[in-house]
Design a protein around this nucleic acid. Structure first.
Lengths: 334, 334
DNA sequence: TTGAAAGCGCTAACAA
DNA sequence: TTGTTAGCGCTTTCAA
C-alpha cells in the first residue's frame, strides 16, 4: 500500500474512465441509479489506484464531519482514569465500523469552553458525554445547541438519551446478598452527590435493604465523602456505631477505607466486612480480595457510540439503555 | 451565548458591511494588509453576531484539518491505562491552546488499519504515537506516509522526533541508590523486549550497576517477563539464587511479584527488597509502600503535542527531548 | 442511466 | 488597502 500524498480526485477518475464526476460519486456512495457495469468499472479503478475520497470535501458538501465528540472531565482522580480509557476504546470500535472518528474534548468543572467551541466549530456530528452530574452544565449546553448527543450515565434532564450501567439493580443485589450472608449493620460510604451515579448507587443500596425487610434507618449512611479525610472520618464513625460491613460506592473510597483500616489494625473480614460498588485494578490485589460489582465500561462506550450514530442518522433510539453487571463475591465479605 | 445552527457565513458579513469576502477573511486571519478601521469593524460585527468560521471549509481551502492524531494501543493491560489517559490530557491542553483538536485512533498488534485510514483520509495534520515498539510497524507506516509525527518513547528509526522520559538516568540513579544502601545481589525483572522502553530501562539498570563498580554479571537478569507465570517463576528463581533486591521494570510486574511474595510469606523489606521503575496508583497503597520512579505522563503528552504543532508549522524541533523524573524512596527498600 | 452545473464556506493569486 | 476571481473536492438538483 502506498500513501502517496499526491492526491487523486474524483475528477481524475472521471477523466480516466471517460465518464462524469457525478457518475463516479454515485458509484462510490451507492446513491442513485447506476448500471452495474459502470459501477464495477469505477470500483475496480479505485481499488487498482488506491484512491481515497477526501472526507473534508465530502464534509463540506454534506455538512457532515464523520467525527463523534468524546467529552471527558480533565480533572478526575487517578482511579477513574481506566474507566474513561476503556469507554473510549469501546466507542472507538463502534465508531470505526461506521467510518466515524473520535474527536476528544476535555471539560473542567469551571470551564466548558472547549465543548462549546467544538460545537460551534461544527467539528463533530454528535457528542458522547462521558459522565453526568446533577444539574449538569455540559448537558444544558448540549441541549441548547441542538446537536445530537448521548450521555454515559443517567440524567434527569428531559429527553436526554442515556446509556448507563444498571446501578440500581446491581447495588441492590449486592446489598441484599451481603445482608443475607449475615451482615446486621451496614454502613454506606458514598461519594459526591453532585455525581448522579452516586445517588443512583444510594438508591440501589436502599432498595437492597428493603428487599430484606430493613429500613434506611437501620443503616449508617455517609454521603459526600469527597476527600480522604472525610472518608476516614466516616469509617471511624461507622465502626464506633457498630457497623459490621462497610459498603463503598467506588474503589477510590474503598481503597482509602482499606488503608485506614489497615492503619488501625482492623482485620477484614473478621472485625468488619467491606465491599465496593465499583471495582478497578486498584482493588484486585488486595488481601483479602474485595467483594464488588463488575461492569464493562468498554461495552458502555461501544453502545453509546452506536446509539449516537443511530441518532445522527435519524433513527429512533430508546431514551435509556441499561447494561448488565456481575456481583463478584470475594474474601472481604466472608 | 447562542449556538444557533442557522449558519452565518463570511459572505453574509461581507454583505452586511458592504465589503468583500476577502477583506473579511483577512480581518479574521490577520494575513495581508488591512486598515485598522475595517479590521475593527469586522471583528466587532463578528463578536456582536457570534459568528464562528466553518473549519471544514477552511480545511478544504487550506488543505488543513486542525486535528492532531493520537494513536494508542487498544490492547494494553489495565495498569497502563492511566498513563495513556494522562498523556492524552496533556496533549489536549497543548493542542487546545493552538486551536487544534485531538482525533483518536486505536491500533492493535495485528491491525493498524485505523491508523492507515486516518492518514489516507487526511483527517489529521500530524500524529502523536503513544508508545514505541522495536521494529515498530506504526512508525514505518508514518515515515512512509510523509505525515509529520512525533512519538512518545524512543525509537531507533532514523529521523523520528521523540519525546521520552529520561529512563536511562532515572533507572541508573535508582539502581545506584539501592546498591549504595546495601543491596548486594540485584535481580532485574524486565518486561517484553519488544517494547523499547524496557530495553532502555535495562540499559539504565546496567549503567547504575557500573556506576557502583559492579558488572552486569553480578546481577540476575530476567528479560521478557510477559506473563504472570513467567514473572512468578523469575521471582522464585531470583530468590533461590540469592537476590536481596528485586527491581521490576513496571508496576504490573511489581504488582505480580508482590502477590507472589505475599503468597510465599516472604517479608518486605526484611527478606527481600523490591522497587519498581514505574509507579502508578496500583502500588501506592501497598504495605510497605514501594520505592519507585515517578514520571509525569501529562507533561509528556503536552510536550509531544507542542512539538508536533511546531513540526506542522515547519519549525525546527530537536530530534529527541527527555523529560525529568523523581526517585521516590519508600519502605520497600529500607 | 448519465451528465452539466451550481454550490458547500473559505482562502489566495492576481489585479486594481 | 481592497476587490475579483478561481479554486479546494465532493454532492446534488435538474435536465437529458
Amino acid at each position: 500500500m502506498s500513501y502517496s500524498r499526491e492526491k487523486m480526485t474524483i475528477d481524475d477518475i472521471a477523466q480516466a474512465l471517460g465518464i462524469s464526476k457525478t457518475t463516479v460519486s454515485r458509484s462510490i456512495s451507492g446513491k442513485g441509479r447506476i448500471s452495474e457495469d459502470t459501477r464495477k468499472k469505477v470500483i475496480d479503478y479505485i481499488k487498482a489506484h488506491d484512491y481515497t475520497p477526501n472526507p473534508i470535501a465530502r464534509g463540506l458538501a454534506q455538512a457532515k464531519t464523520y467525527n463523534l465528540g468524546w467529552v471527558v472531565p480533565g480533572d478526575v482522580d487517578m482511579s477513574s482514569l481506566p474507566f474513561f480509557q476503556l469507554a473510549m476504546i469501546g466507542m472507538s470500535e463502534a465508531a470505526a465500523s461506521d467510518d466515524y472518528d473520535i474527536l476528544l474534548t476535555m471539560v473542567y468543572d469551571n470551564d466548558i469552553s472547549r465543548l462549546e467551541k467544538m460545537i460551534k466549530n461544527r467539528k463533530v456530528d454528535g457528542v458522547v458525554l462521558g459522565r453526568t452530574l446533577e444539574d449538569d452544565i455540559n448537558i444544558k449546553t448540549l441541549v441548547k445547541s441542538g446537536i445530537p448527543f448521548v450521555v454515559i450515565g443517567s440524567s434527569n434532564e428531559r429527553g436526554v438519551i442515556q446509556i448507563d450501567n444498571d446501578h440500581i439493580n446491581a447495588c441492590s443485589e449486592l446489598t441484599s446478598i451481603i445482608v443475607m450472608k449475615g451482615a446486621k449493620k451496614l454502613a454506606l460510604i458514598c461519594g459526591s452527590s453532585a455525581q448522579i451515579v452516586n445517588n443512583t448507587r444510594y438508591e440501589g443500596f436502599i432498595k437492597g435493604l428493603e428487599s430484606r425487610g430493613m429500613k434506611p434507618s437501620d443503616a449508617l449512611i455517609y454521603m459526600d465523602c469527597d476527600t480522604n479525610a472525610i472518608i476516614e472520618r466516616a469509617v471511624d464513625e461507622a465502626l464506633r456505631n457498630g457497623a459490621d460491613c462497610l459498603i463503598c460506592t467506588d474503589d477510590h473510597i474503598c481503597h482509602t477505607a482499606l488503608v485506614k483500616l489497615s492503619t488501625d489494625n482492623i482485620q477484614i473480614p473478621n472485625d468488619v466486612k467491606i465491599a465496593s460498588f465499583y471495582n478497578s485494578s486498584l482493588l484486585e490485589r488486595n488481601q483479602p480480595p474485595i467483594t464488588s460489582l463488575q461492569y464493562d465500561p468498554r461495552k458502555l462506550g461501544f453502545e453509546a457510540a452506536r446509539t449516537l450514530i443511530d441518532c445522527i442518522n435519524g433513527k429512533e433510539v430508546p431514551q435509556k439503555k441499561l447494561m448488565g453487571y456481575e456481583v463478584v463475591l470475594k474474601g472481604s465479605t466472608l
